[in-house]
Simulated scan of single mutants.
Amino acid sequence: MNFLRKIAYPFSLLYGFITSVRNFLFHINVLKSTEYTTPTIVVGNLSVGGTGKTPQIEYLIRLLQNNYKIAVLSRGYKRKSEGFVLADEYATAESIGDEPFQYYQKFKNIIVCVEANRRNGIEQLEKLTSPPDIILLDDAFQHRKVKGGFNILLTSYHNLYVDDCMLPTGNLRESKLGAKRAQAIIVTKCPENLSKQQQIKISSKLKPRTNQPVFFTTISYDETLKGSHEMELEDLRTAKILLITGIANPLPLTNFLSEQQIKFKHLNFPDHYSFKEKDILNINQAYNAIQSKNKIVLTTEKDYVRIFGRLKNVYYISIKTSFINHKSSFDTIINNYVEQSTGHR
């Protein structure tokens, strides 16, 4: 914790008080939460950024897409449009945001839309000629005006919400008590070899409610890179690599590359960074300065949708959420919720 964050602690107390009062008013129905006919699954966190919401949304899409018509509703962070926007063939990362555009590019049989007002977003989806069977709400855990049917709370292994404190001293958006609203908690970005004893210790630390299961996932990296064309991960060991990232926490990726004995030069930008022309110029200069014919620009999938077409010889590495254990239990819980909810419509 740096010095500025320490001296901001009084503001953290004030912010925590304000968010707690807000949550209490929702709890006693002074502020109203709207519940919708269409089943909704909320994926979110208590802290700002970096808990793995995007791969978790993609996991749910893969789990459900063969049996249900899915819509993903996101805020569309840093997009240049306003209001409700339905992704179509004219959509770009600038018009709907990088993560929604990634969903749209990757999954052709789902609906992707953005709207900061989640209530209006859901209402617009329900008015479609062919409305969705299930709506996935990306990063909406604090959007209390919508009562999610099933709430999934993510917390990073390296920064559990129970070890954090409120903004601006820490990274919490609301009190740790907010975790009680979740129907399931997922500890993300765990080491692959996390033992059962360590899992039990972390679960005990989180103090979940009765019938509030805790799951543990890790990040799996694709063995095949995509971009200019396809290449295998192992080919990176003999290449000169310029790594470009504009995500909340690039450490898991840089650690993975190092573990694979892949050397790289890293240019790190802020999360959801909007690359300007001068940035592209600087990246190209850094790339041209590499003295090798076997060289590439490597980036994340989320960054790729913002810079493809602006750089030459650029590739991205995809990630997936993998459950360390109890995957079938999680899948069953989700499938049961969706099946029962759609059956009651």
Rank of each mutant, 00 (worst) to 15 (best):
N109K: 12
I70M: 01
S274F: 00
G121W: 01
P270A: 10
S341K: 12
I296V: 15
K180R: 12
D235E: 15
Q105G: 08
L154H: 03
Y9K: 13
Q142A: 09
K207D: 11
I41C: 10
P39Y: 03
P250S: 06
L251I: 12
D235K: 13
H158E: 13
I319F: 00
E232W: 03
P252R: 00
N67A: 12
Q124G: 06
S33H: 05
R306P: 00
S74L: 06
S322D: 13
Q102L: 15
R237A: 14
V72T: 11
V21N: 10
Y90T: 15
Y15V: 09
Q285Y: 12
T300N: 02
N294H: 14
C113R: 03
L25R: 09
T300C: 06
F215S: 08
L253C: 01
C113T: 09
Q340D: 10
K320V: 00
L253I: 08
D133W: 07
E94L: 09
P213V: 08
D303M: 08
K226H: 14
K276T: 15
I290S: 05
T321K: 06
P132E: 03
R119Q: 14
T342E: 07
T299N: 06
F26A: 13
Q124I: 10
E339Q: 14
H229E: 14
D279Y: 02
L46R: 01
E115R: 00
Y36K: 10
L13R: 11
F107V: 02
S175H: 12
Q105N: 11
A184W: 01
I219F: 01
L160V: 03
I96C: 08
L242C: 09
N109T: 09
S203M: 09
N193C: 00
G246R: 00
F264Q: 06
G148C: 05
Y157A: 11
K147P: 04
Q291P: 01
H158I: 07
R75G: 07
G83Y: 03
E192N: 10
F215Q: 03
N29R: 15
T299C: 13
Q142K: 04
Y103P: 09
G16T: 08
K302R: 04
Q260L: 05
V338Y: 02
S47D: 00
F3L: 10
K312D: 12
Y287G: 10
D164Q: 13
L14R: 06
T34E: 15
I152F: 03
V338Q: 04
N151W: 00
